[in-house]
């Protein structure tokens, strides 16, 4: 997983970003910059706009107003498909395509004419702690945790420099969660920028170095994870996570 060092001030920067749909405001007045290192967490109560924030970064949606920049360039000017090759994404559910694990891993590379030989695919599986014999397995027979790991490997097959993850471990057991977290730490140490949406404070503590805290569509806080947990006690943090309905 080699990433070339390029000169840019911020990996992502959002300038006065608003997003609304059918008259409902999802995000408003977001001004933030995300640097190129480590793992960044996006936290906040349900409905705070975390997933929307993430989708803005790889242009799966476009802001109603404002500018999203990737490596100092406005992504509105960039080709969506090429941007998404550089910015991989793992969704909350694996959403694998019908067929084998191998056909799923090769889905992206086929678009981009990246040649893979079987040993390289086995290495890719090894990254997400799956055995070589998984390659020819049909996705129907995989457990939820295995499917999510294949989904992660599928994104990595495009050789992205950024990986966006939308609550990837929500529906998984503790073992699968731990495997995915270890993989993410490993990828971050290899130079891939990770941005993860999570609702778990424990996962935030374990994984992230910096975090963005969103509430009701507003960016409340951008800080280091250490400072966040030093600054607020558990009760205060819990109260932050209560949304309008008190959930």
């Amino acid at each position: 997983m080699n990433t070339t060092k390029e000169s840019f001030s911020n990996l992502f920067s959002l300038e006065d970003v608003y997003f609304d749909i059918e008259g409902k405001v999802i995000l408003s007045k977001i001004n933030v910059a995300i640097d190129n290192t480590g793992i960044t967490g996006i936290i906040g109560p349900s409905g705070s706009g975390k997933s929307t924030f993430l989708r803005l970064l790889n242009k799966l949606i476009s802001p109603t107003q404002g500018i999203v920049k990737f490596k100092d360039s406005d992504i509105a000017e960039m080709k969506s498909q090429e941007l998404r090759k550089e910015i991989g994404m793992v969704l909350q559910r694996p959403f694998l395509f019908k067929g084998t694990v191998k056909s799923n891993l090769l889905y992206g590379p086929k678009i981009w004419n990246i040649d893979y030989i079987d040993p390289e695919l086995v290495n890719l599986l090894d990254t997400v702690s799956l055995e070589a014999d998984f390659l020819e397995r049909d996705i129907e027979g995989l457990s939820g945790g295995e499917q999510q790991r294949v989904s992660l490997a599928r994104s990595l097959a495009n050789q992205p420099i950024v990986l966006l993850l939308d609550e990837p471990t929500t529906a998984l057991d503790i073992v699968s969660e731990e495997i995915i977290e270890n993989t993410l730490k490993q990828l971050a140490s290899e130079g891939i920028k990770i941005i993860i949406v999570t609702h778990s404070l424990e996962q935030t503590k374990r994984l992230t170095e910096q975090l963005l805290f969103l509430k009701e569509g507003l960016l409340i806080e951008k800080t280091t994870t250490k400072d966040f947990f030093k600054q607020y006690n558990d009760q205060e943090i819990r109260s932050f996570f209560k949304n309008k309905e008190g959930k």
């Binding site: 799966l60 090759k85 969704l91 959403f95 694998l96 495009n158």
Partner: peptide, 20 residues
């Protein structure tokens, strides 16, 4: 919808993403 979005996120075009 989820699978199509996953294909788009991998850099696929909408037309190819809904081929099946």
């Amino acid at each position: 919808k989820g699978n199509i979005e996953a294909a788009l996120a991998l850099g696929d075009s909408p037309y190819r993403a809904i081929q099946n």
